[in-house]
Nucleic acid binder design. Sequence first.
DNA 1: TATGAATGAGTCTTCATTCAT
DNA 2: CATGAATGAAGACTCATTCAT
Lengths: 205, 205, 205, 205
Amino acid sequence: MQVVKDNTRKLLLNTARKAFLQKGYKAVSMREISKLSGIGLSNIYNYFSSKDELLTVVLRPLLNEMDRMLERHNKPGGLSLDIFTSEDYIRGSLNEIMRIVTNYHQEIKLLFLYSQSSMYQDYLEKWIDRCTEKSVEYMDEMKRLHPELNTDISRFFLRYTSSCWIDMMKETALHEELSHEETERFLNEYVRYVTGGWKKLMNVE
Amino acid sequence: MQVVKDNTRKLLLNTARKAFLQKGYKAVSMREISKLSGIGLSNIYNYFSSKDELLTVVLRPLLNEMDRMLERHNKPGGLSLDIFTSEDYIRGSLNEIMRIVTNYHQEIKLLFLYSQSSMYQDYLEKWIDRCTEKSVEYMDEMKRLHPELNTDISRFFLRYTSSCWIDMMKETALHEELSHEETERFLNEYVRYVTGGWKKLMNVE
Amino acid sequence: MQVVKDNTRKLLLNTARKAFLQKGYKAVSMREISKLSGIGLSNIYNYFSSKDELLTVVLRPLLNEMDRMLERHNKPGGLSLDIFTSEDYIRGSLNEIMRIVTNYHQEIKLLFLYSQSSMYQDYLEKWIDRCTEKSVEYMDEMKRLHPELNTDISRFFLRYTSSCWIDMMKETALHEELSHEETERFLNEYVRYVTGGWKKLMNVE
Amino acid sequence: MQVVKDNTRKLLLNTARKAFLQKGYKAVSMREISKLSGIGLSNIYNYFSSKDELLTVVLRPLLNEMDRMLERHNKPGGLSLDIFTSEDYIRGSLNEIMRIVTNYHQEIKLLFLYSQSSMYQDYLEKWIDRCTEKSVEYMDEMKRLHPELNTDISRFFLRYTSSCWIDMMKETALHEELSHEETERFLNEYVRYVTGGWKKLMNVE
DNA sequence: TATGAATGAGTCTTCATTCAT
DNA sequence: CATGAATGAAGACTCATTCAT
């Protein structure tokens, strides 16, 4: 009995995820989910109290990861230049992103591209806001630790880079077919590009 | 009579633009546009054959600019390294972007953020695809002209930078309140960052 | 065209009135009104913005009369004992009630018996409250004018008589088939009963 | 086991009573009763076959009293004038009412005000009908016993007084906060009013 | 050109009740 | 005695679009 319930729940979740991904949240009706899953329309409400909750449960794990990512951003163990210029550090961050993308690429597409008209339609913008705030705080710390560097970066530019971060997640999620080699290659390119950019911007050496 | 028609048309266009911007394409009903503009609901269909066309006409000028931007990308006068590494060149490109953003910031927000459920919901993704294609072609040319450089950049990375380009438009459009000085400052930051990144990636010098 | 519209409006109003009367407000669905009237379901909303408004428009004239009745209650020209003890005065009041009941007997049944679950479900209780208030004020005046009488009637008893007033409207509306003679007879009985009661209660003579 | 059952039954009954009183019969769902009581939704149907039966059982004691009241009406020991004109007799009847109201004021409110859309929505009207019938029969008896009196009261007037009887129950139930003194006072007022009215109407002395 | 009326399929959600276990 | 799952009909209301005038 519990088994049945779990199956139904998962079936609904998967059906909804797929449908949302194909047509966007707003364009998928509960009727549609009912027909696609074979679960009676009203029965759905025994498992999820609303269409919004269906989306919420689908997105929950990803949302948690995204929030955790934000936390880690400002607490890089020893506060240092590394976050911008160390290839190893950046490579580590990227690897973590890759793990998230691998696990949740569907959810990412859903959240990043198809969640309009849902309660999460502004989630990314708010995430970028929060990330920008963290970046500004971080820069202030750097200003004290490395007065010799150009740390007077505008909030606006920091927002742009936060946005690019989101962009990278989106792009990698969109191209799920990447082989391990290709991924490795992209990582190398990305790391060189970013460190080159930050070093020049901050006058490192 | 023709005068009346033009006025009505413009009124409808402006009303729709504002409404779409505030609530998103899908969430705005034709009834709403009718009430806000004072134009009879069914009369709207004498000017625009559908809700989609209303959006199309609103976005048309921006769409043209976007397409033109794409054209220019691959024909940079003399095909050269400048596109990546010359600060002047990049500054020039950016200035052009700024002009577009200034003129069409409303339309950009509309297209970039609020066009889900419309026929343009995939426009940006396709634009990025086309831009990526152009970039790949460009890189191939560069490989011949500058065999000493690392021009073996993955299509995936090129797509990422195309996406970042779109991102920059979005961010600047979102922050319309930027003063001339702030804009200038951002341009400097951006140019340094991008040229620094590309130079390192391509082993220039 | 305007003719058509008015007809449709009236048709809807009459259909709704009948249906509400037969089954109660809550138990009648918009679908039902649509089918009974032959007006397309969604077209109804071109005439009435909601089910509640449909009921409101049906009840409006009666509601106005009820409010007016309340106003008149406390301003009986020359404030006097008549309101309780004069057969002529009471007969006059009653005749007015009869006119209202004759004109709006359907609406009365609707408001008094079948409006549960609508926005008017508490209307009568509030009316009785207001009427009680007026009666208390009236009694206070009487106390000054006729100190020799027993005007020390409890608010609770006054509320009871207000409620009986409503009762009388309900009963007469319920029995629309009363002939003129029967009505006349009831009036006589009622007048004798009420004046007899008040006189004894107030120690008149 | 039987003990458990009884507890559950009572719990359900009390929960339902409270909920019905607060929101009205129709507005309370079985799900709600289930949640409020902690009894599983479908388990409710092991105790009560339907939502209507739940209401029935809640109202049963009051319904019995109401029916008994009706019986007593026509069998006043010695058939006499007292029923209308003896203050003691009326006071006795009223005291009985007070007892009922005290014991079942919640049920009265439920039956009188919140039972729309249930099988008891017409109960009061039917009770008034039956009461009217009894009154007519009673009057016929009186006509034989007291030919000197005006016993030619219209059925319609008798119905009105039956309705007022119900009204009095409603009013007293609605104002449960009445102190003993206030109740006593109201009783005095009511008795004087009613006997005064009937005496005048029937030409007693 | 302009209007008000009309359409029909669609939205999410709730209900009392029943079934299998 | 108790449970969670399931059902099917119904609820009010909205939508983009078309029709007749």
